[in-house]
Simulated scan of single mutants.
Amino acid sequence: MIQIITCDNRRLFHHALMEMHRQRKQVFIDRMHWRLSESMGLEIDEFDSEEAMYLIDVDAHGDVQQSARLLPTLSPHLMSEVFANLCDDGPPRSARVWEASRFCPAPTIAKGAPRRELLARMIAGILETSILFGIEKVSFVAGAALAPLADQAGWSVRALGPKQRMGRERLVAMLADVTSDGLAAVRQRARLTGPVTRFADAGLARAA
């Protein structure tokens, strides 16, 4: 189940959050050699703020399988501060637009189909979370491997500009619409029979 973690319920998920930051360090710094800061074996950046929402996929044994971050675009975020040049008309900013970033599968997850299945679950989780919190669009930056998978997931998504080479990667900024039809299409393509998220706050509320 993908846990929706906000500033209100963050105290309930200390272990999962620390494991998320450890996995981000292992994946992005150790394996992919991104030039990111790390401290005490954790990858934490300036956008891991109180405003951030985290989606952490935890299996039946309590092990973190994947994670992602959602940020409000009215505040500084990756697309506005680092990747603005990818957007022909500038990064979208609105109370109803949030950015998804730091999609991170656990280092133990095999490449190929297992990771594609996780990505499909996370996209469904992003849509469920967005519907729950009144978010209408989700922006994100994708590399050459992720972009076609995100484009074919079933939701309505478009590029905000042409692909550009930055360092060793070709990146593209994208914007997805949040709709119930899009969520249904993502679930159908991923063979998901129902919600994948849970929001624990004064009891459990399951995303529609």
Rank of each mutant, 00 (worst) to 15 (best):
residue 203 G to H: 09
residue 69 R to T: 05
residue 130 S to T: 03
residue 60 A to I: 10
residue 54 Y to M: 12
residue 140 F to D: 06
residue 93 R to Y: 03
residue 126 I to S: 04
residue 144 A to Y: 04
residue 3 Q to F: 14
residue 145 A to P: 00
residue 178 V to W: 07
residue 11 R to L: 08
residue 121 R to I: 01
residue 133 F to D: 02
residue 162 P to L: 03
residue 5 I to F: 11
residue 168 R to P: 00
residue 179 T to I: 09
residue 144 A to T: 06
residue 163 K to A: 15
residue 69 R to F: 09
residue 137 K to Q: 15
residue 54 Y to I: 05
residue 184 A to V: 10
residue 61 H to K: 15
residue 198 R to G: 10
residue 32 M to Q: 15
residue 167 G to Q: 00
residue 117 E to G: 11
residue 48 D to P: 06
residue 149 L to A: 09
residue 132 L to T: 14
residue 40 M to R: 12
residue 26 Q to P: 00
residue 176 A to H: 05
residue 45 D to G: 04
residue 141 V to A: 11
residue 170 R to A: 12
residue 58 V to C: 07
residue 96 R to E: 14
residue 47 F to D: 09
residue 29 I to V: 15
residue 118 L to S: 14
residue 153 A to E: 06
residue 10 R to F: 05
residue 145 A to L: 11
residue 93 R to D: 03
residue 111 K to C: 05
residue 49 S to R: 13
residue 38 E to R: 00
residue 17 L to S: 03
residue 82 V to S: 09
residue 104 C to D: 07
residue 81 E to V: 02
residue 86 L to A: 08
residue 51 E to L: 14
residue 5 I to G: 08
residue 107 P to I: 05
residue 58 V to W: 02
residue 202 A to C: 11
residue 36 L to K: 00
residue 103 F to G: 09
residue 115 R to N: 12
residue 205 A to E: 14
residue 134 G to F: 11
residue 35 R to S: 11
residue 165 R to S: 13
residue 54 Y to W: 14
residue 65 Q to A: 09
residue 177 D to F: 02
residue 54 Y to K: 12
residue 14 H to Y: 10
residue 146 L to V: 14
residue 23 Q to F: 13
residue 187 R to W: 03
residue 147 A to S: 04
residue 130 S to N: 07
residue 23 Q to L: 06
residue 44 I to D: 01
residue 121 R to K: 15
residue 98 W to P: 02
residue 192 L to D: 01
residue 100 A to N: 11
residue 207 A to W: 01
residue 25 K to N: 12
residue 43 E to C: 01
residue 59 D to K: 08
residue 129 T to E: 00
residue 62 G to S: 13
residue 208 A to Q: 14
residue 94 S to Y: 11
residue 141 V to R: 05
residue 167 G to A: 05
residue 131 I to G: 07
residue 96 R to G: 00
residue 171 L to Q: 03
residue 10 R to T: 05
residue 41 G to M: 06
residue 207 A to D: 10
residue 152 Q to W: 00
residue 151 D to M: 13
residue 60 A to F: 10
residue 186 V to C: 07
residue 29 I to Q: 01
residue 125 G to D: 02
residue 76 P to F: 04
residue 108 T to W: 12
residue 189 R to M: 00
residue 198 R to C: 13
residue 22 R to K: 12
residue 22 R to L: 03
residue 57 D to P: 01
residue 45 D to C: 05
residue 190 A to G: 01
residue 42 L to M: 06
residue 90 G to N: 04
residue 48 D to G: 10
residue 150 A to C: 15
residue 189 R to I: 00
residue 27 V to Q: 13
residue 61 H to E: 15
residue 78 L to S: 12
residue 35 R to G: 06
residue 195 P to L: 05
residue 53 M to K: 06
residue 165 R to Y: 00
residue 82 V to A: 06
residue 165 R to E: 13
residue 55 L to T: 08
residue 207 A to R: 04
residue 157 V to E: 01
residue 175 L to C: 07
residue 115 R to H: 07
residue 53 M to E: 06
residue 94 S to Q: 10
residue 139 S to F: 07
residue 187 R to F: 03
residue 98 W to I: 05
residue 166 M to E: 13
residue 10 R to Y: 09
residue 113 A to F: 08
residue 64 V to C: 07
residue 114 P to Y: 05
residue 101 S to D: 09
residue 194 G to A: 13
residue 69 R to L: 08
residue 78 L to F: 14
residue 192 L to Q: 02
residue 138 V to D: 08
residue 115 R to C: 02
residue 2 I to W: 08
residue 34 W to Y: 12
residue 10 R to N: 03
residue 106 A to Y: 08
residue 33 H to V: 06
residue 204 L to D: 14
residue 144 A to E: 10
